[in-house]
């Protein structure tokens, strides 16, 4: 038996590198972005889908197996994946994708972070030291992240550099056109007061000028309590919000409870690709987000 094991180990040491450029994306938005930049030169595996809570993923064996053969991990960073990604990366035995290596890419490093907490204390809930990690809700961040990602892919896979640069430029062009359209469409949303279930949308609010008047979670990541929700309802008279926003992966009860007692609509936003049936790519994600917000006005 030991001879068998030794043989396997020696076999592993002498295995050749894989031909395809494998990318392991933690969440659907980075999977889609990597696909836009990589085109047919890359094989993208996305670890989660739009109906999963990105804070609460487990370090599943299937993820370790996929990380094992990846040349590049594309993560959000800012501690979003802290509950599972460090373990997956370490357990994979893949030296190229360890933290600090070029094969480990964190999107949050390339955008301006919002809600950086002045004090770090768990009594304030599930706060992220680097700021709010839900950066993908502002499509302008895709330009910055996409550019950095293209650079990283060129560095790691120079043979396909031309394709990566060209793909990124084409994508950025389409995105800029779409941005003009989206901002025109979303103009009526500017200044609209909203409640949010989880602090999932500060970048979206910042982009479209929505005004957050309260959160249903008493502290980030903590389940709403009935007394806290009653306070939110009471606050409606002084500071009336027009709608309550919830990310598709979150459970419905708290926002429905508020909607029932205040009469304002619940808007379920896709949050990422796959969150709603309409949000199928990086463009329809924001089309659908804006449409859903406008319908609630």
């Amino acid at each position: 038996m030991t001879r068998f094991f030794s043989l396997l180990i020696l076999l592993a040491v002498s295995l050749p590198a894989h031909a395809a450029f494998n990318i392991f994306a933690t969440v659907p938005e980075w999977g889609a972005l990597a696909q836009e930049v990589g085109g047919d030169k890359v094989s993208v595996y996305t670890a989660t889908h739009g109906l999963q809570d990105p804070h609460r993923i487990e370090a599943k064996p299937s993820l370790i197996a996929r990380a094992r053969t990846a040349q590049l991990v594309v993560a959000t960073g800012a501690d979003l994946e802290i509950g599972w990604l460090p373990l997956v990366v370490r357990e994979s035995g893949n030296a190229a994708i360890q933290f600090g290596r070029p094969g480990y890419f964190e999107a949050a490093r390339f955008v301006s972070m919002l809600e950086i907490p002045p004090v770090l204390d768990r009594t304030l809930g599930d706060v992220h030291a680097a700021g709010n990690p839900h950066i993908q809700t502002d499509p302008r961040n895709l330009l910055k992240v996409g550019e950095a990602l293209a650079r990283r892919m060129v560095e790691l896979d120079p043979a396909n550099a031309t394709a990566y640069v060209a793909n990124y430029q084409a994508f950025a062009e389409r995105l800029r056109t779409a941005l003009v359209r989206w901002e025109k469409q979303a103009a009526p949303l500017r200044g609209v007061p909203v409640l949010v279930q989880h602090k999932a949308f500060p970048y979206l609010q910042n982009w479209l000028g929505l005004k957050e008047t309260g959160t249903l979670e008493p502290k980030p990541g903590l389940e709403p309590t009935s007394s806290w929700l009653a306070g939110i309802v009471a606050q409606q008279t002084a500071q009336p919000a027009r709608m309550v926003l919830r990310a598709a992966y979150q459970h419905a009860a708290p926002s429905l409870w508020i909607a029932e007692r205040t009469g304002i609509p619940v808007v379920v936003l896709p949050f990422t690709i796959g969150g709603t049936p309409e949000a199928t790519n990086l463009f329809s994600l924001y089309d659908d987000t804006i449409n859903r917000l406008l319908r609630a006005l």
Partner: peptide, 16 residues
């Protein structure tokens, strides 16, 4: 401890 993860979609880990 020495362990090895196989480069396959099925997670296979061998440890000694």
């Amino acid at each position: 401890q020495l362990k090895w993860v196989a480069p396959s979609k099925l997670f296979v880990e061998i440890g000694l």
